[in-house]
Write a protein that binds this DNA or RNA. Structure first.
Lengths: 111, 111
DNA sequence: TTAATATATGAACATATATTCATATATTAT
DNA sequence: ATAATATATGAATATATGTTCATATATTAA
């Protein structure tokens, strides 16, 4: 039995993504895949904010927010700076906003 | 104490996202947040494929793939058509590819 | 009909994840 | 020093999720 040959329109580029890269990509999307984290990111779209402020804005404990901020930082979606007792968090780069908006566009078009 | 006024670059649009929309958005990213599903999507980038074919390509059981395809379909990332015994799955629209690539770009730039 | 093939699906299991609680650290004020 | 404030974090708990297994459905062949 002859093996099937790939049709001409097969996208070789897609097939050449390293397995490790795919894991990283899944991890990236996983970070965006939680409404609390999305709400935190939204809160940071305008300007940097401290943990307390975010917690109040979302009506959640600072512990929960702090845990999620750590997660967001580990995944390089946010960065922070310390000023006295308070720590200000902000978006790591504009990619975050771009990815967010790309997804949002898809969601809004599906209504 | 005077309240801080938002700096000029604040994106008001982001603040007005409905909570429900944010949940939908989180759900969308959640779908992309699993390497098996990403691998399935990759397999569909070139052309439509049947369950068996995808299962072989990923070295997984057709049950696992079938479950994930159902999930992908429920979330409108893939569609399918039946031809005799076999069911062919394909990407629902080009947005899927766009979102995938947007994330990939971010991941690759972080190396 | 029976058998074979392709897919779908419910239940069970194991793992992952988000939040809470208690506690720890760090900074500033008194 | 102690107290107050802001944040961080480990452990525990509850929930969510991905895969496997067994079984069901659907189509085609014999």
């Amino acid at each position: 039995m002859k093996k099937k040959t790939a049709p001409a329109h097969v996208c070789k580029a897609a097939l050449s993504i390293a397995p490790e890269t795919l894991y990283d990509l899944a991890d990236l999307f996983k970070v965006f895949g939680d409404s609390t984290r999305l709400r935190i990111l939204c809160a940071l779209f305008g300007s940097e904010r401290c943990v307390q402020h975010i917690a109040e804005e979302l009506g959640m404990t600072h512990s929960a927010i702090s845990h999620q901020l750590r997660f967001l930082k580990q995944n390089k979606l946010v960065k922070n700076r310390k000023e006295g007792k308070t720590v200000f968090y902000s978006l790591a780069d504009e990619h975050v906003h771009t990815i967010f908006n790309q997804g949002l566009k898809h969601v809004l078009e599906d209504l």
